[in-house]
Design a protein around this nucleic acid. Structure first.
Lengths: 239, 239
DNA sequence: AGGGTAAGTGTTAATTTGACGCAATGCCAA
DNA sequence: TTGGCATTGCGTCAAATTAACACTTACCCT
C-alpha cells in the first residue's frame, strides 16, 4: 500500500541501558527506523509484525501502535525516491506519492539477547543504539523515537509491560534497573518490590542468580496467565 | 491523499447523555462517522480539524488522534466506490485503492449546544445519537466508536478533559453527571468535588444556576491558563 | 409555612504510598 | 578462615491519599 509506511521503534535492554534498533541507509545521511509497507491483504498489525520479524528474527513480540505521523512535510524526497526505485511500488504519473508519506508508529519490546539484527534491502547496517546517545537520524525519526519513549513511559505506569525487555528469568534488581532506565528516575528498592508483588504476575523460581558478587538474588519469571487476567480486570486505579 | 481516510468520533453531552454525531449516507445501509481525506499539503491534524469544522461549524475544538484501523477487510466496496465517484480522487487502473482503506480515528469533545450539524456531500442527514442507543453502523464504525469511548475513559482518569463537553458555565453536579455518564459509574458527590478542586483548574463564578429546583448550585468555568499549566506539570500520579 | 430534595461543607476510618531499619547472604581481602 | 562490605530480603511506621458518611443550608412546591 503506497503513501503509508510503518516504522517500528524496537526497544531492547542491555548493560543497564535502553537501546533502539536502527538501520543505516545506503548512500544517505543518518540512521533510520526499521520500517516497511503494508501488503495488500495484510492487517497493519501483521505488517508491523512482519517487519519486526525480518529485522530481528523474533516472533510473538510485544508490539503496540502508538501514533501516526502526518506532517505534510515530514518526508524526505531522496528517501522516497530510493524506496520507489528499489521496490515493486510504482509512482503514478502525477507523482502524488512522491510528495508525502504518512507513517504509522509502532513500538516493540524485545529480549535483547534473542535478537539477530539483520539489515534490510535498503540498508547496510542494523545496529543497536543507546537511547541516550543516538546518532543523527533521517527525517523525523528522532521525534518518532521520543514519542515512542514517552508512550512507553506512560504505559509502564499502568501496565507492567517492562518485563518484555528481559530474558525469561531475571532478578528483581534487574527488573528495577530496567524501570529506572525507562523512567529515568531512581526508585526505592523495597517499595518497588512491594508494588511488583502486588500485581501478582511474578513467579519466584527455586534457584537464584549465582556467581554474582554479594548476596544471590532470587530469579523470577512471569506468570503470563495471571498477567493477562490482571490486565483484563484493569491494573490502573480507577476514579 | 488516497487509501487513507480520517474518521471523527465527535462526542457531545446533552440531557445527561453522551452523544455521537453521525451521518446517514445516501443509498446505503447504516450510519457513518464524519470522515474525509487528507489534502496534499495538510497536516493530518488539520484534516481532522477541517472535517470537524465542516460538520459542526466549530473551531478550536479538543481533538485527539487515538488509533489507526487497518484491517485488510474493513472497507466496504460500495462505500469506496461512492467516494471515488463523487470526489476528485481517481482510482488508478489497477484499482488498488478500491480494495482497502486505512482510517485514522480522531475523537473530539464539543459543546453540544454550540454545534450546527451539517451533512456532507455524501450524506442526507447529520444527527446526534445516544452512545447507548446507536443505530446500525456502516463498516467497522461501531468498533471505532467503542475504541474512542475506551480512550476517552482512560484519558479522563489522567486529564480532566471532560469539561470540553460542557458550555462555558456549568455547575458541579453537571460536571459530575458528565463524568458518571462517560465512566458509566456512580461517583460520590463530595469526593468528586474535592478531587476536581485539587486540580485547581476551576473558577467559581459569583452567580449561581437560578430557576432550578432545590438549592441553587454555583456556576463554574475553567481557568484555561491554570489548566494548561497543570497539564504540563503532569496530573497523573507517577510511580 | 413546612416538607422534600439537592447543594455546600466537614469528619473519620481505611488504604496506599514514601521513607527508612535491620538482619541475612555471599564475595573478597587479609 | 574470617571479618569487612555491598547487596538482598523482609519489615515498620508515618504521611498522604482515598473512600465512606453526617450535618447544615438553600430553594421550590404545595
Amino acid at each position: 500500500m503506497p503513501c503509508v509506511s510503518i516504522d517500528c521503534v524496537i526497544f531492547g535492554f542491555h548493560d543497564n541501558q535502553l537501546k533502539v534498533l536502527l538501520l543505516k541507509i545506503e548512500h544517505l545521511e543518518g540512521w533510520a527506523l526499521p520500517g516497511g509497507f503494508i501488503y495488500k491483504d495484510e492487517h497493519i498489525d501483521d505488517s508491523a509484525r512482519r517487519i519486526l520479524h525480518e529485522r530481528t528474527g523474533l516472533q510473538d513480540i510485544f508490539l503496540q501502535q502508538f501514533y501516526v505521523f502526518g506532517d505534510a512535510k515530514r518526508s524526505d524526497e531522496n528517501i522516497t525516491k530510493l524506496v520507489f526505485e528499489k521496490t515493486e511500488f510504482k509512482a503514478p504519473e502525477n507523482n502524488w506519492l512522491l510528495q508525502r508519506f504518512l507513517t504509522i508508529g509502532y513500538y516493540a519490546l524485545v529480549n535483547f539477547n534473542a535478537v539477530h539484527a539483520a539489515p534490510d534491502y535498503f540498508s547496510e547496517a542494523c545496529e543497536w543504539h543507546d537511547i541516550n546517545n543516538l546518532p543523527s537520524l533521517a527525517m523525523d525519526h528522532g521525534g518518532i523515537i521520543q514519542e515512542a519513549l514517552r508512550t512507553l513511559r506512560t504505559h509502564l505506569h499502568y501496565e507492567p509491560v517492562g518485563y518484555n525487555l528481559l530474558p525469561e528469568k531475571f532478578t528483581m534488581p534487574e527488573l528495577q534497573h530496567l524501570y529506572e532506565t525507562i523512567l529515568d528516575e531512581k526508585l526505592d528498592r523495597r517499595n518497588f518490590q512491594r508494588k511488583m508483588f502486588s500485581y501478582h504476575i511474578l513467579k519466584r523460581l527455586k534457584d537464584r542468580r549465582k556467581g554474582v558478587a554479594h548476596k544471590a538474588p532470587f530469579l523470577y519469571s512471569f506468570d503470563l496467565r495471571k498477567y493477562h487476567k490482571a490486565l483484563q480486570e484493569g491494573l490502573q486505579t480507577a476514579w
